[in-house]
Every structure is written in structure tokens, then in C-alpha cells.
Design a protein around this nucleic acid. Structure first.
Lengths: 205, 205
DNA sequence: AAATATTTTAACCATTTAGTTGAAATATTT
DNA sequence: AAATATTTCAACTAAATGGTTAAAATATTT
């Protein structure tokens, strides 16, 4: 194999990622994946046996990329305000390359909660204890309002992810075109940290 | 027709709403809708001709219920903090009866942005000017931080809707069962107003 | 009672789609 | 060069699914 070009198996996989992210499992067609990869349908089954098996690998890869973006930051030992800043930074970096992942991952999780539970068991995903303790400490020290860590984390993630999931709706409500929407997303990144830190009434150390 | 019992057309429609909300357009099956309505498949076509026509009516009804929940409140002439409180209140009321609507509506919008554009044109949905002006005024009067109204509104909606869309994920991360999740949602309602008003540094008149 | 509308049943058709096959062509490895 | 692996092609099967039909049964309206 030429080192320059990816092998077909990888090419198919990447095409499948794109198509499944666009259409979801039920809406995706094997023929569309083949077209996207610019190979014929026989190759799909040659390498992946079935739609189901191909999808499971795509799904696993995407949640395996999606979760660590937060969890990596949540576990680090840095001040809370920096941590939140890094969360925003990390997610925005990831999402500008992968804007459809939140919708895909969350939708398919809801379609099959059992599959997610199994994945979580087999992986090292765990309730974010470090973050939890840190918030509790900050509250005790009087540096922020009394807020359940789960509510805070959910809020941070919601504020970041939602605009990537609701693109069409937001464009519709505010009459934005593609370019206007990118501007909106860029400005939002600046807006978020202040909004969140004010929201919990955070006082820097 | 007996006034007590709904007619079949309505029965089918409601079943279709439930199934489409659960499975999405691509994942829904006509047979499943028939089973859900407890009638046979012939009746579906007798009343609605095709899956596509049935879906369009369901989709239209759901966004026609979904949007007014916010827009009704946004246009009213009440102080900003009350308005935000009412937004939360109104959405929570609506969503506890219809928890799957956000996921459904937003997903299907993304699958077919053109359909949404057409719907918006034909309806009286418009950028929320009243809310926009109100926020501008509050900023001018020094009663809140300088924040784009679009960012604020998006944030409010994100904070409310996200937990209904990401139920499976949130349950997974925080190891919550059904009951624990309902508690989480209830506590969130209390948490949100303070978080948002602090977030924009709002000072009551 | 007669006419009309609704519902069931069950078989059926047409299309889409996942998946298969086998032969030929091409590339890669040994 | 021979053997093996990869790829294309085109036709194919099997199953799922949307949609149709017609006849009979039941309910409703006139």
C-alpha cells in the first residue's frame, strides 16, 4: 500500500462516519456510503459485513471522541474558572471540525440507551468526581453560589453544544445565512465564559 | 360518532405523533403507527394517503406547538426578569407533557432545512423584535451586561431544552435512573432563573 | 329500510434496500 | 512468475416496507 493514500477500509469508514452523521442510522443508505467513499457496494460488505456492524464501529468511535473532550479537562487540577475556559476552548476546537457530532451522538444514544450503558461500562467513563469535589470546595470557600455540580456541568455543556445541534432553528429564528451563523458562533465563544462565571457568581482566588 | 371517543382520523394522528417523535421520519414504520393506533394499516392510507403526507402534518403540528411557547412570552410587555421566569415556566410546563418534542423538531429541521424555511415564511414566526429592543434598552440603562440579544435568547433556550434532548447522556454520565432524572429536572427549574439573571448581571428595577 | 361511511381482513403489488455472488480485472506480495 | 489480495462490475436474492385492492362486516346517517 502506498503510504500517501489511505487504504480502502479506512476510506469506507470515514465515508460511513460522514453519512451516518448526516442521516442517522435509519436514514443512511449503504449505497450512499459506497458513493461517498467512491467505491462499490461490494466493498462495504467485504470489509464490514453488515450495516449494523459498520454503524456500531462508527458510533463507538464517535462517542469515544466525544466524551474525552470534556472528561480530559474535567479531571485536570486547575482552578475552576480556567477549567471552564478550557472546556469551552476544547469543545469549540473539536466542534468546528466536527459540527454534526453532538446531534448524531445524542440522537443515537436516545434511540438505543442500552447500547450507551454497555459502552459506558466497558469504557472508563465515570461521574466526574474531581469536578464535583472542586465545585463543592469552591462553594464552601464562598467563591461561588451554592449550585449542584451536575447542574453546572449540564449548563456548560448545553450552552456549548446546543447551537451546533440547533443550527437550522437558530438560523431560521434570527434570519441568518451560513456566514452570519459562523459569526454568531464565533461571538458566542467570547460570550460564554463571562456568562457562566457570572451565572455562578464566581470570585477569582 | 360518539362524543366520548375520538374519531379514527384523530387517533391515527396522535399515534403518528408518538411514533414519529420516538423514531424520527426515517426510523418510523407505517405498521408501527397502525399498531400504536390499534387499527390496521389500510386505515392509514384511507385517511392520510402516504407516509410523507402524514409526516408533514405531524411535523407542522409539532413546530406549530413548539415555537409559540417562546414567542408568546417574548412579545409580551413585562420586565426582563419576569419574562425569563415566564419563559422557563412556560417551557417546563410544555415539556413535561411533551419531553420528546425538542429532539424531534430540531432533528427533523436539520434533516430538511428547506421545509423549515417554507414553514417560517408561511407562518407568522419572526425575529423577536420586542425582546431584542428590550434587551438593548436594559443594557443602555445599565441594568445588565452588554450582551447580544441573540446570544441571550439562545442561551436561555439551550439551558431549558438541552436536558430534554440529552436525557440518555446525562443519565449515563451521572449514573441516574428514571426517578433520579426527574429529580434532576425539577431541581434544574429552580436553578435556572438565578443562573441566567446572574449570567447577564441583571439588576432589578 | 336504504344508502352511505367506516373498519376489518387478508392477500397482494411495487419499490427500496441490505446483502450475495461469481467472474473478470487489477494490484500486491511472495 | 506465481500466488494472493483487492477492486470492479453487474446481475442477483431476500427481506422490509410503503402502498393497493376488493370483498365482507359493521356502524352511521338519511
Amino acid at each position: 500500500m502506498n503510504a500517501e493514500e489511505k487504504d480502502t477500509e479506512e476510506l469506507i469508514f470515514e465515508a460511513a462516519c460522514r453519512v451516518f452523521q448526516r442521516k442517522g442510522y435509519a436514514g443512511a443508505r449503504m449505497q450512499e456510503i459506497a458513493d461517498e467513499a467512491d467505491i462499490n457496494k461490494s466493498m462495504l460488505h467485504y470489509y464490514y459485513r453488515s450495516k449494523d456492524k459498520l454503524f456500531k464501529k462508527v458510533y463507538q468511535r464517535e462517542i469515544a471522541r466525544f466524551f474525552p473532550v470534556i472528561f480530559g479537562v474535567l479531571d485536570s487540577d486547575i482552578p475552576l474558572d480556567e477549567k471552564i475556559e478550557q472546556l469551552i476552548e476544547a469543545y469549540y476546537g473539536f466542534l468546528s471540525d466536527n459540527p454534526k457530532i453532538p446531534q448524531f451522538v445524542i440522537y443515537e444514544m436516545n434511540q438505543n440507551p442500552e447500547r450507551l450503558r454497555k459502552f459506558i461500562q466497558e469504557s472508563n467513563i465515570h461521574p466526574p468526581r474531581n469536578f464535583h469535589n472542586q465545585v463543592k470546595q469552591e462553594i464552601k470557600a464562598g467563591r461561588m453560589n451554592k449550585i449542584a455540580p451536575e447542574q453546572l456541568l449540564t449548563s456548560i455543556v448545553a450552552l456549548i453544544l446546543f447551537p451546533f445541534m440547533a443550527e437550522t432553528m437558530i438560523q431560521g429564528i434570527f434570519s441568518l445565512d451560513e456566514k452570519g451563523y459562523r459569526t454568531f458562533l464565533g461571538e458566542r465563544k467570547e460570550f460564554l465564559l463571562d456568562f457562566i462565571l457570572n451565572g455562578i457568581n464566581y470570585k477569582r482566588q
